[in-house]
Nucleic acid binder design. Structure first.
Lengths: 326, 326
DNA sequence: TTTCATTACTATACCATGAAATTAAAAATG
DNA sequence: CATTTTTAATTTCATGGTATAGTAATGAAA
């Protein structure tokens, strides 16, 4: 590959001049500019980003750590984060952690080693001290223990509450929350709390709770947990799930067991990925503003890289989308 | 961040020694090794990958260009390519082209500029000359014009043929192919040819053809094309689609219009992503070995980086998975 | 004393950046 | 008009963190 030097030589100037033309807005005479342009054309020059990063002590990479890339929610998140990155001239380094805390750490190290502009973590393993040490800006999709870290999140409590209100309004009396693998984490807890609050407000008992496993998340098959619902809580008439895939699983189960939806059972999913509308029975679900979330996260990083102030926490509202399962 | 120099200083050796220990298999005495290890620990040293890449003239990045990250097929592809990369110690640079040939070029340039080990293109824009110039190994998921480029693909003709055989065997007489946005591309053509061959073998007329648009692909909503099917070919009794999302669209349409599946109409999808089993009506579909494909692509790159020979073309068989739509 | 293993030293390369210095040309001054 | 000042355009030089080749030095074992 042609280097700056080659271009400079061909254009009859020094490397600095070429570099200046490319990077700084200091004037370069039009003639030299033309000569350099021509030389670059002829040689098919493209700067070595490695050298750039080294010299500048930072790259234009943005690291993204997600637990899965297959899962629809994260697939959309990835999609939008890529788009947002690209629109800011950044490149996306994608890391799939499989929810493995160890891997998360390793990936994080690797990203820091690659001098990324910032790291976005979509699943924030609990004890993550390394972060505070490094000074690479980081954004998290979860309320971090460390208040220094910017955070973009949606209003999970509201989501649970909306779902509860909706189902109760439709006549449900026995609610159940089918929680994701992250049952003990805050996201799940907040949603549950929202749901529970709605129950309390209407004088209903606490919602029941079933926790799916991580394996089910990976396999995108929640059959085991879904059937537990009906074994353990036969009189349930409203199910709220942690994601749309689970909701689809419930719908499928009911179809096989001739439980009519929405008459006998109402189902509210979560995320509102395109999948929610694609199931043969379109899901009522809580819509998460994934694109806004993604944009916000990327912007946090860009701003911090520019030395601008960054809001510590941003809370995005969610909304309920009514379709056919309620 | 601590640098090699810092580590060397602390361990009382020269950078060369530390570097040697990290990179070459030349012997370093156990004591020095221990001292260096300790120093690295204490300083939390992690090598600057930028500097490494620069010095070595290559990085351990693998670039992946896909038209979309949301689309289920590509989401799974991404997932598996990430996994395969990681297992070889490589990092994944994800690029979403939106099927824009211009963007594809730009991304490709960018990747070359980042000295990636290789590029995997999941949608291979036609006239892509830049490739031949650069010598970064590249793998494509499509039969390339350029025979130099390794290529991993599945047997699309077989896929079409299987679908045809299956539907004809189930009694269909009027087949239709709902083609993806890439109707004019080879993939789609080969599938159609396979389907047509099956028809011919059974003395049926050529299958009808409807082409979806790129916009529909992006929106993951094929309503417009789906309804065209029934307007233009009211007597169709078997639909073969280019992906599972389309098939789900057909199923949904039929559900709304009380066309019973599989009695009146049979549907065969393509890809067999997890989505195929998740729809409320599980799809009969052509299974693509996405994981194997991904692994193969990554291995091609690794091998070429090691200077080993790489098979030019690898053709993977597909198989039909029968579920409830036929 | 020779031999060998280990480590140090030195220099150079990778490619680009950026601060400071230089040159050349244009403008202002007496 | 000669001289100084200003400005624009470009160059020189040092720098970033690591890799690597070649050579010298050290110390211990043969």
């Amino acid at each position: 590959m042609a280097t700056l030097k080659d271009v400079a030589q061909r254009a009859g100037v020094t490397v600095t001049t070429v570099s200046r033309m490319l990077n700084s807005r200091v004037r370069v005479s039009p003639e030299t500019q033309a000569r350099i342009q021509a030389a670059m054309q002829e040689l098919g020059y493209y700067p070595n980003e490695m050298a750039r990063s080294l010299a500048r002590k930072n790259s234009s990479f943005i690291g993204l750590i997600v637990p899965s890339a297959q899962n629809y929610f994260f697939a959309e998140l990835i999609h939008h984060i890529e788009a947002a990155s690209e629109s800011h001239g950044c490149k996306l380094l994608l890391c799939v952690s499989n929810q493995d805390a160890q891997k998360e750490q390793e990936y994080y190290q690797m990203l820091i080693g690659n001098k990324v502009m910032g790291v976005i973590m979509a699943n924030y393993g609990q004890n993550f001290e390394a972060i505070s040490r490094s000074k690479a800006p980081m954004v998290v999709f979860e309320r971090p223990d460390n208040q220094q870290i910017p955070c973009a999140m949606t209003d999970d409590f509201q989501g649970g509450h909306l779902a509860g209100e909706h189902m109760i309004g439709k006549g449900c009396r026995h609610l159940l929350y089918l929680s994701g693998n992250a049952a003990k984490n805050n996201i799940s807890k907040r949603r549950f709390d929202g749901l529970a609050a709605a129950c309390a407000e209407h004088g209903l008992t606490q919602p029941a709770l079933i926790e799916a496993t991580w394996d089910e998340f990976v396999a995108m098959n929640y059959d085991a947990s879904v059937s537990r619902i009906f074994q353990e809580y036969p009189n349930v008439d409203g199910v709220f799930t942690s994601n749309d895939i689970m909701a689809a699983g419930v719908v499928q189960y009911c179809r096989r067991h001739h439980i009519s939806i929405p008459k006998k059972l109402k189902v509210v999913g979560y995320d509102d990925t395109s999948f929610a509308a694609l199931c043969a029975m379109p899901l009522t679900t809580i819509h998460q503003p994934i694109e806004e979330l993604a944009r916000h996260a990327v912007e946090c990083i860009i701003r911090r890289a520019n030395g601008d102030a960054v809001p510590t926490t941003a809370l995005f509202p969610v909304r309920l989308v009514e379709r056919e399962t309620t």
